[in-house]
Write a protein that binds this DNA or RNA. Structure first.
Lengths: 226, 226
DNA sequence: TAAAAGATGTCAATGAGTTGTAAAATCAGG
DNA sequence: CCTGATTTTACAACTCATTGACATCTTTTA
């Protein structure tokens, strides 16, 4: 059963949402202010957050930003009052997935919910972000950090890492890598792979000479352990 | 309650439309000629305009054109007499959303009305304005400013920016952009994209050579960070 | 165990491929 | 036919992939 967290201080609205979602077969949790909303969203295995913009203690925007900054990617739909047009932009900017302007019909909200959840489940299938050690990878915007500092990786290095991650634990041969990561534009030598591994180690390993994540498997290839 | 403006000089028709719409729960205003129709459509917060093509003082086509030229996007349904086939094309060309040929059943008209309003409300959901840095974009009337000064953006540049904004943070490939922004009328080269990016940077970046908003992702594409 | 053979790590130079940008050619709308 | 927008072309600047050379390490074998 899918779990939805409703963060809404207006009692009538909160009850309407709770009943509506329960009718639709969701497990509903209600929070009445921003801080408890943030806590519940982080703690529980929530599938979806409905977040009012105007809230006591902490605004919906801040809750949203805070959640996203911790890497929490739970789908969020914001509720804004009419006339808070500017909030649409701010809401999306701070990481919400969609917004609905009050007053709205429950049907309308449900349509958005379905859409957002559909998108989210699609996202889950693809590798968007990955973390190992103090390295954070984002394959969507091609950004990476190590220990919080930005890490400059080329597109090939991203592809290489992606392949490794999708085959983590498994020893992969150089030919396998050339097939999948290089896809044969020209026919680079297997040594080219070594080169890239070396560069990658320089960037992601704490001690590149004694690698911890990209391990050499002699006479076979390499193995990623993250 | 939704407000409809009926611009129709034929008394019998005007009354029939007024009664029909009122029965459906609309607030109805009737105008008997083009000029007053135009005035009412601009002044009042009208949700929908029913516009006869043949009108005294100012034709329905001209009213429509005039309205659209002022950036007014109110849904318009044109009424044309049979045999004015040519007007269908003209009507849609001048910015109407749909047309109905006389004689028609009221049911038929209402079906069109519902369809047009549904489409319009969808449009409302879409991005209307966006701001980043000192740049302000208005996608509704295709106006933009940078640091308060008007910014001259072509329609393609608007589309491009819109796509970027809807995918902000994400690295998008040139092919993706060609698919979505160009929609393959002819098959422009990927270099065409670069060209437009360069021009866009000239316009929106503070230092186009060292862009802050449209970032190049080498061997991947571009990424918007606003 | 020591030497040989083979595999891998690393560096620097080269070069293929990508991107920025100006200018010319083309297209579309009035 | 003119004007402005768009697309194409051309070339410079740049990034990064590739390669070969050589050092170092691992495995094999005498």
């Amino acid at each position: 059963m899918r779990k939805v967290l409703v963060v809404e201080d207006d009692q009538a609205m909160a009850i309407a949402l709770r009943d509506g979602f329960e009718y639709e077969g969701y497990a509903v949790t209600v929070a009445r202010d921003g801080t408890s909303g943030l806590r519940l969203a982080s703690e529980k295995g929530v599938d979806l957050v409905i977040l009012d913009v105007m809230l006591p203690k902490m605004s919906g925007l801040d809750v949203c930003k805070q959640l996203r900054s911790t890497g929490n990617g739970t789908p969020i739909i914001m509720l804004t009052a009419r006339g808070q047009e500017i909030d649409k932009v701010l809401g999306l900017k701070c990481g919400a997935d969609d917004y609905v302007t009050k007053p709205f019909s429950f049907l309308e909200l449900m349509a958005r919910v379905e859409a957002v959840l559909r998108r989210a489940s699609k996202k889950d299938e693809q590798l968007e972000t990955y973390q190992f050690g103090d390295v954070l990878l984002n394959f969507k915007n091609f950004e990476a950090t190590k220990a919080g500092k930005p890490l400059d990786l080329s597109s090939r290095e991203f592809k290489l890492l992606k392949y490794f991650i999708e085959h983590r634990g498994e020893a992969v041969s150089r030919d396998q890598l050339l097939d999948s990561v290089w896809s044969y534009h020209g026919f680079p030598l297997t040594r080219t792979v070594d080169m890239h591994i070396a560069k990658l180690r320089q960037k992601i390993e704490d001690s590149p000479a004694d690698p911890r994540y990209i391990i050499t498997v002699h006479r076979v290839g390499y193995k990623f352990t993250g």
